[in-house]
Structure formats: C-alpha cells, structure tokens
Computed example of a mutant assay.
Amino acid sequence: MNEVEELSKLDPAGLPHLKPILLDDLYQSVSKNLHLELGRGPVLYLLSPSFSVLNPTADEGITDFITRKEALLDYLKEAIVQNLAVYSVLIDISSYFIEQNNGLVLARLRERDSEGRRFEIKFYTHSPLELLTRYEDKIYVGRDFLDLYSPNRKYFGVKDSIVSLKAQFVRLSERAGSKLKKVQEFGSYFQEIGDSVNELHNEGLLILQSLPPHLDFAKLSGKDLIDINAQYRTINHYVIELHDTIAEFESLLRFKERSDFVRYVTKYKKDVTNLISYFNIKINGVIAQRIRLCKAKHP
C-alpha cells in the first residue's frame, strides 16, 4: 500500500481542471460525507471528510502529508464524486443504504502502479455512529476506477471493468486454496466461471476496439448510434452470462454452508451486478434515449 507516497509526488496545479457539475441531493450528501482510506506502508488510514485521521492513531508521516497536500486531497475527493456521478451507478444502486447512513461513503484507494495517476477504488457505506466501534460492519457498495489525468474515460470506462473482473477472478481462485474447504468439489464451477470471464474479456475488448473511444452525439447519426448501442448490448450479454454462472456457484456454496468463502463470491457477484446496471442505465439507456431523439429518416 503506497497511496500516500505516490500522491505525495503530485501537484494539483498540474492536474486537469475539473469543470463544476450540478449534483443532486444524494451526491451532494456523499460529497460532504466522503471518507478516504489511504495506505502508507502496511497501514491503512481512515480520513474524515475534513482529513482528520480517524483510525489508526496518526504518525508524523501521515500528518505531514495531510498538511502539505490538503489541496490535492480536495481535488481527489471532487474527482471521485464527479467520476461516480458520470461514469457509475454505484451510489444510485445503493442509495437506500447510503441515505440510511446519512450519506457516509468510504473510498478505499489502491494505486495501480502508475505513479499516483490511476486508482482502483472500493466503496463502502457505514453508520456514522458505529464507524469506529463496528468498522467491520461496513456495507460493500462496489468498485470503480479513476485516472487523475484523464477525467473523460474511454468507452464509458467499460474496459477498466472488464480487465478488473478477470483479475478479480484470478485472485478469487487463489484465495479458494486457503479459504474453501475441499475446493476440488467445486472445480467445474471455477472452470465455468473462468471460461465465462475469459470470453467476456476477449470478446468484449475486441468489440471495444471497433467502437469510438468517446461518443460525440452531435456528429453521430441515428444509424451510427443504433449500431454502437447493439455492440455495447452484446458486451452486456456476456456480463449477464457471467453473472448467472456466479450466482449458481454462490447458491451452491450457501446450500453447503461454506460461509468461509461465499462472501468473496458474493462480493464478486456484486461487481458484476453493478456493471450490468451501469450498462442498462448509463450506456445502453443513454444511447437509446439519444436514438429516440434522432429524427427518423424516410426514403
């Protein structure tokens, strides 16, 4: 965990300007109550919305970082919230739990070997009253990705999600060796999930290569949008197939009372479910709306 070290190298003046966007009440609440979790060596620090160290006890290194880099942390929080609002449905899908927790969201950053440029972020929500006393009761919201130098994400950010799902399956398989008793009994499920995630990865990335990285709706015809929408829908179908396979495996684990491992599968399924919702709402849903706004051309 080296997020603090890598962020220390960044100058907010050199980062892209973030254009202000209008946030609804839910996202405004999240923005005001966003807690950051940053690693420094073996220690994961929990920071309040005003960057006070809540846990564990602050040492000189983290205190100095916060003092020197408060402007960067402000930028980071704004970038995270804007990214959630534009390229994600995580907050919307989990709005019930987030509103029950007064908008409190935890953003746990993991730097992706990019000198502080790219991050994978896991999001959780938790009751404000029990955040420190029952931290382990946090609710997993999902994960997303942030490139501080490229706020406009290519392919709606779908490539990041596809690559992540494959990497997560590798980690899930490795974890099964120590967490799942009699793992050999479930070999066929790991094979089936592996085949499905590889198909999503290979076919999905191939489809993305045929699409424009960014959509300029003003320049695209109705026919273009219909074709693009169909291609994204095809990728979503691969995600749905993966979801169904994971759900079947999860049900079997629960039936066999393998609670020592099923929670990892449930978390993986949550990421897949979130991606399906993202396609339906922010990709295919938005493109379909644009198609309906196009004037029909008659021969």
Rank of each mutant, 00 (worst) to 15 (best):
R254M: 12
G41V: 01
L206R: 15
K181F: 07
Q82L: 04
R263V: 03
Y75V: 02
P128D: 06
D224H: 13
S8F: 11
N284C: 09
Y96L: 10
G204C: 06
G194D: 07
P16D: 04
F279L: 03
L84E: 01
L129N: 06
V43M: 08
E6Y: 07
E250K: 10
K32Q: 14
R292Q: 14
E6T: 09
P56T: 00
V81Q: 05
D113A: 13
S127V: 08
L7G: 04
I291F: 02
G14W: 03
Y155Q: 01
S94V: 00
K297I: 13
L172Y: 06
D147L: 07
N152G: 03
F145D: 02
P151R: 04
V81P: 10
S210V: 01
V86Q: 12
S188Q: 09
N274V: 10
G157C: 09
L7I: 08
E130A: 13
Q231P: 00
H243P: 03
T57Q: 15
A247Q: 13
L293Y: 10
T245Y: 07
L211Y: 01
K19R: 15
L54E: 13
D64G: 05
S161F: 14
L225A: 02
L132R: 13
L215H: 09
V272R: 09
V89P: 05
L165C: 05
E5P: 00
P212T: 05
A13F: 04
R40A: 12
G39M: 00
R40H: 14
R263I: 03
F51I: 02
E248D: 10
A176Y: 03
E3L: 07
V86T: 13
L252I: 09
P16E: 08
P56I: 00
L215A: 08
F65Q: 04
L7Q: 07
I98G: 05
E241K: 14
